[in-house]
């Protein structure tokens, strides 16, 4: 499934590969059964958060497509038969007998959810946490009938696990859950994985934008990234700027469950040192003569990011970012 980093992103090829992978996964009944069981546990654990997120997004993500016929118009798409009698009785004077599609009632967003599948996620004890967040998102977006949702994993580049054309189902979500290992580690993955992902995701959003424009629909594709936030910021910056120029929204959810164990708690040990808030990075000083240490998040390249250490914080954090974004556009 993995392709060379420099190979151009081919959406159709990815779709074919994902379908083949899904069929292969389905043929292994035992594995599929285990994944379904794990998914049901995730759902039970995240039902509250997903319901909350769904309600928050219902307010923020407004419907775009008009489907229902309403109103009294002199011209329109369909006749209101109730009005026809009064139209005849009034000697053809009450002629507002037509219905039109005026109020938008359906959402048609295209949302890409991507999870960092690197070893660092496991090291930060974020594997299950990120999957819980992903299940929360997928369930909430499905309940809201938000449009089309694609899911990908970030290894050396973007690897699709569900394309925009694939429909939601329990089985497919279980398949997605089973595809994350959080063990990927390559020589340059820290430096280039996020940059390669951004390049591929921009390409995918370009394609979705183009197809929406062809259909005459309003396109609002956006991406939600779930990661520990540790990557080479300088390499990814070029593609993040490209996304900003194209007005693509990337919401970076930094998962930051500080690695605390009950033993640490009992011993009163402070283990919050592993938190991204305490992470520092060395950068060249402005005069170029030396190096200086500064907080890692100070020059974080994503404009819209939030730090989530508890799943219950996710709905509010996402909603706040989306409100900001839609207020801006």
């Amino acid at each position: 499934m993995a392709r060379p980093d420099d190979q151009e992103f081919d959406y159709n090829l990815e779709k074919v590969q994902v379908r083949a992978l899904f069929e292969e996964w389905r043929s292994n009944e035992e594995g599929a059964q285990a994944a379904m069981e794990l998914l049901s546990r995730f759902k039970a654990e995240t039902s509250e958060s997903s319901a909350s997120l769904c309600e928050q997004l219902r307010i923020v993500l407004e419907p775009q497509l008009s489907q229902q016929l309403q109103g009294d118009f002199k011209t329109g798409k369909r006749l209101n038969m109730k009005k026809v009698i009064s139209f005849i009785a009034s000697h053809y004077r009450n002629d507002k007998i037509w219905l039109r599609r005026t109020l938008p009632s359906k959402r048609d967003y295209k949302i890409l959810i991507a999870i960092d599948d690197s070893l660092s996620m496991k090291e930060q004890n974020l594997g299950f946490f990120s999957l819980e967040a992903m299940v929360t998102l997928v369930e909430a977006l499905n309940r809201l009938e938000v449009g089309k949702v694609a899911v990908a994993r970030i290894r050396d580049r973007m690897e699709l696990l569900q394309s925009f054309e694939d429909n939601y189902s329990n089985e497919r979500t279980a398949f997605i859950v089973s595809q994350y290992e959080f063990q990927h580690s390559a020589q340059n993955s820290h430096d280039f994985a996020m940059a390669n992902f951004m390049r591929d995701a921009n390409k995918l959003l370009d394609l979705q934008n183009a197809s929406s424009q062809l259909q005459g629909a309003m396109s609002c594709p956006f991406t939600i990234i779930l990661s520990d936030g540790r990557f080479n910021k300088a390499n990814a910056l070029k593609y993040i700027q490209e996304a900003q120029e194209k007005r693509y929204l990337y919401i970076f959810v930094i998962l930051d469950a500080a690695a605390k164990t009950p033993k640490d708690q009992k011993a009163g040990r402070n283990t919050t040192g592993s938190s991204i808030l305490n992470l520092r990075s060395a950068v060249k000083s402005e005069d170029g003569t030396g190096m200086k240490i500064m907080p890692y998040l100070k020059d974080f390249p994503f404009a819209y990011y939030c730090i989530v250490s508890d799943l219950r914080e996710l709905p509010n954090a996402l909603a706040a970012i989306l409100v900001q974004w839609f207020a801006m556009i």
Partner: peptide, 9 residues
């Protein structure tokens, strides 16, 4: 056993 692991988590 991921289910068991998750339970422990």
């Amino acid at each position: 056993d991921l289910v068991q692991d998750y339970q422990e988590f």
